[in-house]
Design a binder for these strands. Structure first.
Lengths: 242, 242
DNA sequence: CATATAGTTGCAGTGGACGCAACATTGACT
DNA sequence: AGTCAATGTTGCGTCCACTGCAACTATATG
């Protein structure tokens, strides 16, 4: 939030002292939480521990995050709403799949950004992501979070397409598939250490989806801990009708 | 508790007295839970309530279900493993998408069956499903559950395709999309009151996915509370290469 | 400086989940 | 039958996530 200027909005807004302090403690809590969790694992860290490490009262933790899990995901509480709005209005005239690809690619990037804003070298939160990937509890939590995002997407798509979600399953279907793809992509990206550009990964994955997941489709990462080489062997041949 | 005789499977499985008793209490707990939740809503029912209604000690509840949420989903704890195995071995030689469609359609059916095994008219658990769809807490729980299923699917696909999930994102990607579609489909089916045959819905949805979610794709349900008519207006024209 | 506003903290309480140690039931063996 | 080992059930104590409420404190405003 303070390290790298956010390109989206609300940047360069030091606002009042109060606001700044709030942001600071929020970030402090988040940082402390991620550090501890990376060290000991999610289930071996209590809210009390986090609060102590962040120099706030345990009670204060819940003034900033509605749950212990939320500290891992919730960058901003309004991201879901923003997503919805953009899905409705962006790229008017384009196909639903196209809007999804563009908007969700940006969403992914913004998530990545907010991770980077936590400071520290990438190596640290790479470890964190690896840990998250392992712990089934966290997988569940992440799924729950994405479900919320998905609801926003479905609503946005339904509005854009003028469909009634109760009667036409298409928006929900598309939203579910889209978030599924998004989740898998971000997991993969995190596991790769962030070496492959996220937006490219997301685009490739959506291309795969639009093409109906052909057999020869493969999203591979380089050999070990990739640094510069990037494979992302998508197929740029088939043009799907839009 | 013993309103209607169970019509489905598990019949003619007297096994030992012990096994039967266990099954009985398990079903009793599940029934009690679903009843109470349908009445009061998920968050207004405590485990203690459920236990009381099922005539067991609160502690016993956790001998059968690992969590309060689990009582809503977990039919059997080994379903995930079975899924994995079938994805590896079934339909040798067929495309991954094809196996997914077949196996997941059956999975969905078995879930539906276990719901029906709880007895009572459909109307009851239709209400339950509607409630579940509304409560964000439950949406999250269901997502978490599906995440576990997804992990099994991803593992199975990876094994079938001989891919390393750490290096090739294809299996994970496919699994995520597949469970997304499955989830949306089952939600839709439940919301429709189970009027539309589930396996047909699932097949249609997978067809849509294999075709890259064309714009004209629409999975619609009849007007109001459907009874006999069923639309499922999929497109049976395009044959995708396999 | 006084006052309103808003954030922080402590406290007490609810409820989910677990480990452990009795107690009850079932099944097997002689 | 009668005894014993498994296995299931229950109660108890504990930990921890989470919440409402009521001080208390720091910022903002007049």
């Amino acid at each position: 939030m303070s390290t790298a200027p956010v390109t989206t909005a609300a940047s360069a807004t030091p606002a009042s002292l109060r606001e700044r302090k709030k942001l600071a403690t929020r970030l402090g809590i988040r940082r402390a939480a991620l550090d501890l969790i990376a060290e000991r694992g999610y289930s071996h860290v209590t809210v009390e521990d986090i609060a102590a490490a962040a120099d706030v009262a345990p009670r204060t933790f819940f003034n900033y995050f509605p749950s212990k899990e939320a500290v891992l995901f919730g960058g901003g509480p309004d991201r879901a709403e923003e997503l919805r709005a953009r899905l409705v209005h962006d790229l008017p005239g384009s196909a639903a799949l196209e809007v999804l690809r563009v908007v969700l690619a940006e969403y992914a990037s913004s998530v990545a950004e907010s991770l980077a804003a936590l400071g520290g070298e990438p190596t640290r939160w790479v470890r964190q992501m690896k840990a998250a990937h392992a712990d089934p509890q966290l997988r569940a939590a992440q799924a729950a979070h994405m479900a919320q995002v998905e609801a926003g997407i479905a609503a946005g798509l339904a509005e854009r397409l003028g469909a009634d979600p109760g009667r036409d399953a298409y928006p929900t279907l598309l939203a579910s598939a889209a978030t599924g793809v998004l989740r898998a992509t971000m997991s993969f990206w995190a596991a790769s250490g962030g070496a492959v550009p996220l937006d490219r990964l997301v685009s490739a994955a959506y291309q795969a989806m639009a093409d109906g997941f052909p057999e020869d489709c493969a999203l591979r990462s380089p050999e070990h801990e990739p640094a510069s080489r990037q494979a992302v062997s998508a197929h740029d041949r088939k043009d799907h009708s839009t």
